[in-house]
């Protein structure tokens, strides 16, 4: 039973692409067949984070417009064999996406993979609405600050009205992924707390990803953080989130750097 998951947020720069790559890689390393699809046509980034930018020949637009077969456009990951990427086109814009074309591609991907993870562009326009259109469930990526929370709220409203599932009268499954979370600043009140965000958005929490240098480092290396430094705090948080998506019940905690065995052995100071 394949699932189409949209990673969305409304606001830009909150971590949609990073989260798509990290969760995709985490699910794939659990043995699931996963494809990550970049819907940010014109501003493609997912290929960079996945380290596949040199291998993009055909992309989502070529397949949507029928210029290439799906099999030609799928890029197999070199590190995890169950993981594939469908890149966006950098030279086109969102108008190149047609509703029927996207529906056809998603239907084809459903047959081949257990998880189809759609990386939504920021905003609430065509690209974002098409990315969420066929989803079975959504991960709403939110930073603990007011503008991100309000934009997420708006996106949840759209998920509840503009998706195929909503139009059929079914309830869209939505999960909150709180990213760039700094427990120390939240405790000081410089940042919204987990409770504040949950109170406003009132959807279930999928995970809390702590703010960490490892995330940026992994992106620059062209690898999902869950593969680049699997023992780091954000990687473990993403791994837990992936397991929750699979239906396992994992207690929600904010992993910290200091818990790792290596750090303990070498007595290194944990990153704050």
């Amino acid at each position: 039973m394949s699932k189409v998951l949209v990673v969305t947020s409304g606001k830009g720069g909150v971590g949609k692409t990073t989260s798509t790559a990290a969760i995709g890689a985490a699910l794939a390393s659990c043995g699931e067949k996963v494809v990550v699809v970049d819907f940010d046509v014109g501003l493609r980034n997912l290929d960079l984070v996945m380290g596949a930018e040199r291998r993009v020949v055909f992309d989502l637009i070529s397949v949507v417009q029928g210029n290439a077969k799906l099999a030609q456009a799928l890029i197999r990951d070199k590190r995890v064999e169950n993981l594939s990427l469908l890149a966006a086109s950098q030279t086109r814009d969102k108008d190149a996406l047609t509703e029927e074309g996207v529906a056809r591609v998603i239907a084809e991907l459903r047959e081949k993979f257990d998880w189809v993870i759609c990386d939504s562009p920021a905003g609430i326009e065509r690209g974002a609405t098409l990315a969420m259109r066929h989803a079975d469930l959504a991960v709403v990526v939110t930073n603990p600050e007011v503008s991100s929370v309000r934009d997420s709220d708006r996106i949840i409203g759209l998920l509840d009205s503009k998706t195929e599932k909503a139009e059929r009268g079914e309830r869209m499954e939505k999960h909150l992924l709180l990213t760039r979370f700094d427990p120390i600043r939240a405790a000081r009140g410089d940042m919204l707390s987990k409770e504040d965000v949950l109170e406003i958005l009132s959807i279930p929490l999928l995970g809390i990803i702590p703010e960490s240098q490892e995330v940026l480092r992994a992106s620059n290396m062209g690898a999902p953080v869950t593969l680049n430094s699997p023992m780091s705090a954000p990687a473990r948080a993403y791994m837990d989130a992936a397991r929750r998506l699979k239906g396992e019940s994992v207690e929600i905690a904010v992993p910290t750097e200091r818990k790792t065995l290596l750090n303990k052995l070498f007595g290194r100071r944990a990153a704050a």
């Binding site: 309000r150 934009d151 709220d153 708006r154 409203g157 759209l158 509840d160 009132s202």
Partner: peptide, 8 residues
């Protein structure tokens, strides 16, 4: 019977 979201 559900929350009214921003923009609605």
């Amino acid at each position: 019977d559900r929350p009214v979201r921003s923009g609605q």
